[in-house]
């Protein structure tokens, strides 16, 4: 099975869906790159290089380089989705949602309900999230929780290259607006990724490590952290079941609850801030639906309620890591 990076897997998903369906277009800042200048138009492929090569294959009509106008990018994507295209819009950093929030929150998310089911909005917004690059407060946030809270939006947070390809193809074929969160520290991680196109359904979490003593729920880049913690714990005879959410909306409540019913303990690992987020949401879910099964309090291992700091020493302190997860597990296993 060929090994591919997450960047390659996403690029391949875009290419295969663009080949399959002429309605699929890519829209964003520098997605072709170099447009309007004398240099090589296909060289850039977005700041992360994810769309590289698409311009050469599909041309400017399908790989649409935009000005730095996030509101117009999102609005154009939403409007084109409602009228017959299947756009994949790239938002360089999810922090920039602040600039174009209205077009997601009040437009794309609402069309279907507000128009009585007569509109479909097959829009995908690909965006990056997460800390670790020293990009600080305006380029490092993990904002999927905000969008998970909005009815009408689906949120995908892949944890590896294989899932990224299957979930992105699913997102492009999905008739609802989907925000696809890519962790910027994961683009070069490799995984076995088939050459063929395939899908992964939304709302099905993946169990990535088995164990019977504690359930660790994680998502995106935190899945690696959780698995590392689980492997260390297993050396000491503590069995941790690690659940990779894959999508936060829809949320696979069943897999979480089934696991907690087995283990009686829950630790949620999330890189986002703790208030009103995924970790709090899942903790509340378990408290609400599986309280009698709990043998100990729920623990959340998240970033603190603070912006992402710049100094590497502070950023390291800010982020959850395996040691913090292990400490949380030990606290409740005793």
């Amino acid at each position: 099975m060929p090994q591919k990076t997450m960047r390659q897997a996403i690029n391949e998903a875009l290419r295969q869906e663009m080949e399959r369906d002429p309605r699929v277009v890519v829209i964003g800042e520098d997605v072709a790159g170099g447009a309007g200048l004398d240099g090589e138009a296909d060289a850039f492929g977005g700041v992360m290089g994810v769309t590289k090569g698409l311009y050469g294959q599909f041309g400017e009509g399908r790989v649409i380089d935009t000005p730095i106008s996030e509101t117009a990018i999102m609005g154009m994507a939403a409007g084109s989705a409602a009228t017959g295209l299947r756009p994949v819009a790239e938002l360089m950093f999810c922090d920039f949602m602040g600039v174009c929030f209205d077009q997601i929150l009040n437009q794309a998310a609402k069309f279907r309900y507000m128009f009585g089911g007569k509109a479909t909005t097959p829009l995908v917004v690909r965006t990056t999230y997460g800390a670790g690059l020293g990009a600080a407060a305006q380029h490092s946030q993990s904002l999927y929780g905000m969008f998970t809270a909005v009815p009408g939006i689906k949120c995908v947070v892949p944890s590896n290259a294989y899932d990224a390809k299957g979930l992105l193809i699913q997102a492009i074929r999905d008739d609802d607006p989907v925000i696809f969160f890519e962790h910027k520290m994961m683009y070069d991680l490799r995984d076995e990724v088939p050459d063929e196109a395939y899908t992964i359904p939304f709302g099905e979490a993946n169990i990535v490590h088995n164990g019977g003593d504690v359930t660790i729920v994680a998502l995106g880049n935190m899945v690696r952290v959780a698995v590392k913690a689980a492997e260390k714990l297993s050396e000491d005879g503590i069995g941790a079941e690690v659940i990779d959410l894959r999508t936060t909306s829809p949320l696979d409540e069943e897999t979480i609850l089934e696991s907690v019913e087995e283990t009686g303990r829950l630790v949620v690992v999330d890189e986002a801030n703790p208030r009103c987020g995924i970790a709090a949401d899942i903790s509340a879910l378990v408290a609400r639906e599986a309280f009698e099964m709990l043998k100990s309090p729920v623990r959340m291992v998240t970033a603190p309620h603070a912006p992402v700091p710049f100094a590497p020493e502070l950023e390291k302190l800010y982020l959850p890591n395996a040691d913090k997860v292990i400490a949380a597990v030990r606290e409740i296993i005793g």
Partner: peptide, 29 residues
Amino acid sequence: LDRGMMGANGIVGAGAPLIVGAGLTAKTL
């Protein structure tokens, strides 16, 4: 939408980017 009326809008100014999207659809397809 069946009549090509893609919506009134409760957010002042928000319809302009959307109609650009409708223009993109017309051009692309």
